[in-house]
Amino acid sequence: MKTPLDEVLMITALGSYVLAALALLVYFFSREEWLRLFGAPLAVLGCAAQFAQLVVRFETTGIWPLLNLYGSLSLFAAMAVAIFIGFAIRYKLWFAGGFVLALAAIFLAYGITWNEGTMPAVPSLQSYWAKIHVPIVVSSYAAFLVAFVFSGIYLVKYYAERAFEGAPSARLATNTGAAFPPGATASVSLRRDTPALEAAAAHGNTVAAWFVALPTLAQLDIVVYRAIAIGLPLISIGIITGAMWAKEAWGAYWQWDPKETAALFSWIVYLAYMHLHTRHAWRGMRTNWVSVLGFVSIVFCYLGVNIWISGLHSYKV
């Protein structure tokens, strides 16, 4: 029997993600350049295959493909990879790709288990708002996934620095200042934010050297901030368009439905992140923990509410 095109594309996407995740995870630890050159195009291929799959599915069935967990998790994985690719190209962050792709592959594989075949939408989902609200919300989740991965790397590096602080080499650490144009003196004190790791690396510790080769904590923190700065406006627009849709479908723009309120909870967590981030003393380890908590709340809002809590948003058949 011939496999339908959308399934071929889905298999291509999942296969590419798994291979790319493996290659980039090994790249993360080994820094072997060829692994990046192998993994990055695979990530792009997988992402393109996923978007193509969604288009093919829509074309062949005529049904908007994002109205069940299968379709929406598929878009979630595709958007997470797409946002990551954007970040990786703009800020040279391919080293973290293995984690993003591994998560994308897991979510996609889980989504596939929800594939029930072609189903027309129930009346409340037959709305042009479905075409606006769902992709926006799912994209916000994807941006938060990227933030989560970089927060994880931030925290690992942060605690590695704490662990090396007691090492004898750390006492010899000096803050040599940032690389600045010759003839100009400058002190950008935040540049060298892991002196203990740098000192240990200078003394030949390979683990420390490996950590030092990662971006600085400040740079990682900026990446997390930028990802959340994509996710927070998107989830805000998602909540607002959801409210507009709810007004049309259920009669009130806010029903305190578990899904809405779970999204509001995540919004509050990321709002707290943004406020804490304006305070110098909180920017860093603590805000990155808030980002981790934020993503846990997103997973709960996205999957937990659909699966465990029934409400107007439970699309389970």
């Binding site: 909870f265 406020h275 909180w282």
Partner: peptide, 21 residues
């Protein structure tokens, strides 16, 4: 104080979560 505001956010978030669960 921003930290006080964030504490209020925490309570707001928790109360919101009660209604989810």
């Amino acid at each position: 104080s921003v930290l006080f505001a964030v504490s209020l956010f925490v309570v707001w978030g928790l109360l919101t979560l009660v209604g989810v669960v």
